[in-house]
Design a binder for these strands. Structure first.
Lengths: 370, 370
DNA sequence: TTGAAAGCGCTACCAA
DNA sequence: TTGGTAGCGCTTTCAA
């Protein structure tokens, strides 16, 4: 029958489960004494060294492992948290989770991950199931949280600002300014934009930031030159590169009167570059492209991607340590943690030199005819 | 105090935990009756419809949620498994996990993931900790399993063939033949090779397969033209692209007398392409490059990557469903499951035309002088 | 058709 | 310095 041997305890030679009671009998001590020693409770100090040694020896000998569930029953800590994410597979999430996992492991925590692919029903129900399973806290990555949870919550790139949620967010205002200033300094004025997918936690903030930065630097945002990247949850069925690829194609169909693109992230930037090349356009010569995130592949792309770096792994670590801090010190207040972006100049952007303009225009004309 | 409110049950209006006992009192029934109904045990059939209805209503009204840990204590199923992987962040693992998670979620399973970054001690200890936490099975991705576990195990791209482990592996013999045949058909004879990192579960098998395929198709494997990609766990500190990048640079330093590269996977192929371009070489004109896997970014790379596809997401799904099958039907035997690879021709390989050879040679000479 | 009682393995309290 | 006892919340006989 299924479920028969799901008890974790080892068996001793006689096929008996090795429990506290069993150990107690072997050692001729009471279960209490052993429990105290093994769980290293304050009382352990009062137990004779010799007894302790005997106990530990028996533990090793019989390979005793305390039953975790029996412990949980007493409301003890589970050292278990959960990570909710739209899709575990994309570059953004996986870098983040990589950082989360690293810190969590260091501190001896386990974690469940549920990737909901944007399904509202999963997003709604998962927290309860996770709570049932004893998680002591949750990290929401790009996932809307509809209600107050009885455990600490840290949000990364989140949508809704539920009260009492610590959130880790990139300073989008600064990020946008960095991107636009760079392009502006290179002489670009006709700039196209990708707006993120509706429902993505960074989309609104980033877009507003881009708009302010544009206003500040006096670059026009032409609706003809801006494209959205779909919306959740549908956009989850594909990759960011694919979204960027198609958005770029549409862009080209509508207009070729731009010299640079500010993508929503590196994935969409890479897709866009692919589309531009397919249209016979050179990046950066004809069109400069800048992304956000600095995912691993950005540095190996052809051309190497200029981007606004978000330290994703570090953000993951930060999310995890913030969560742990809140779990272990519930009295401390939560706060928003701003992460500083950084401009990484590589090869996908270049100056719009006057000399290049003629060649570029001819190429544009040529390709337009196709 | 920490750990006070980690019980999952909801509270009722008076701050009491909603337990079976509580419900029983409300309904003036015994806990037994309620338990039987709620856990839908065979006995439930003998309970009056009306009683059942009353019970379910109360469950809803008080938002009763059975305490999972109390249940586990009785050796009931946990519907929880574990996934062990070197690094959750790379393209290979994350696609795989994406598939695993999808199938698992469909079947109502939760999972822990532990990414051990190749640390032998973690690999050694994790299974026990996971067992303690009640996992009913484990999936090992590219992770050596040193011993027999008391729960079903499925290995993907595994190293050691422990007995009674179901493994999902790509048909490397076929994959290698596909790759070499393709190159051979394009006229390539001087071919360079990347051998995978030592310790990677596919390295040996793939390499042996490459050697046989080479022998079969009469292409020489020149030691000067083959490069390893480091070894575990060190190679885990970086990306496959980076590994490929450096291997390609070394390769060029040693010899330029090759017209094609069979990389170990797409990541290393992409890195190699980057290195070739940096050396002024064109892909595929000067050097054709073929990868393995067909990761998401392969299709957006410049040039689009020709590769031997492993259906990673499907392999993940397969791993999960195999594991579940073995959990739920322990009597069935485990077996190795071979997955068929497929050649995907894109832009990174091309024919070694006689006409190109002259131009190519001159380019090679030029770049060699640098 | 329902209920009482005995645990699952552990911890906590109080007594010795 | 140690042990007895009473649960944690649930399931599972067995009895009513």
């Amino acid at each position: 029958m299924v479920g028969q041997n799901h008890h974790s305890n080892s068996l001793n030679g006689n096929g008996n489960r090795v429990t506290l009671k069993f150990l107690a009998k072997q050692l001729d001590l009471s279960p209490t004494t052993i429990s105290v020693v093994i769980s290293d409770s304050p009382l352990a100090a009062t137990i004779a060294e010799k007894t302790k040694k005997r106990i530990w020896e028996a533990v090793r000998k019989f390979n005793y492992r305390p039953n975790v569930f029996a412990r949980y029953l007493h409301g003890k800590r589970t050292y278990c948290v959960a990570v909710l994410v739209p899709d575990i597979g994309d570059e953004f999430s996986s870098s983040l989770i990589s950082g989360i996992e690293k810190r969590l492991a260091q501190q001896g925590y386990f974690y469940f991950v549920v990737s909901h692919r944007g399904a509202p029903e999963l997003i709604e129900k998962s927290p309860d199931t996770l709570l049932d399973r004893g998680v002591e806290g949750m990290i929401f990555i790009n996932t809307p949280l509809g209600r107050v949870l009885p455990v600490p919550v840290v949000a990364v790139s989140d949508i809704t600002e539920a009260p009492d949620v610590s959130s880790i967010v990139i300073d989008n205002a600064r990020a946008a300014r960095l991107a636009l200033k760079h392009l502006r300094a290179l002489g670009h004025r006709k700039i196209a934009f990708f707006r993120g997918p509706d429902g993505n936690g960074d989309t609104e903030d980033r877009w507003e930031s881009v708009k302010s930065a544009a206003a500040e630097l006096r670059v026009q945002i032409d609706p003809k030159l801006t494209r959205g990247l779909g919306k959740y949850p549908e956009c989850n069925d594909t990759t960011m590169a694919d979204l960027g690829y198609h958005a770029a194609k549409e862009l080209l169909k509508a207009s070729r009167d731009f010299t640079a693109l500010v993508a929503f992230n590196d994935g969409s930037a890479i897709g866009a570059i692919r589309a531009f090349r397919d249209a016979g356009l050179k990046v950066p010569k004809d069109i400069s492209v800048i992304g956000f995130d600095d995912i691993d592949q950005a540095a190996f792309n052809v051309p190497r991607l200029t981007t606004i770096r978000q330290p994703l792994t570090r953000m993951g670590e930060l999310a995890a340590s913030t969560l742990i801090k809140r779990i272990e010190h519930p009295e401390e207040k939560s706060a928003e943690i701003l992460v500083e972006p950084m401009l990484v100049v590589r090869e996908s952007t270049c100056a719009l030199a006057a000399s290049q303009t003629a060649a570029r225009n001819s190429r544009l004309r040529k390709t337009t005819k196709r």
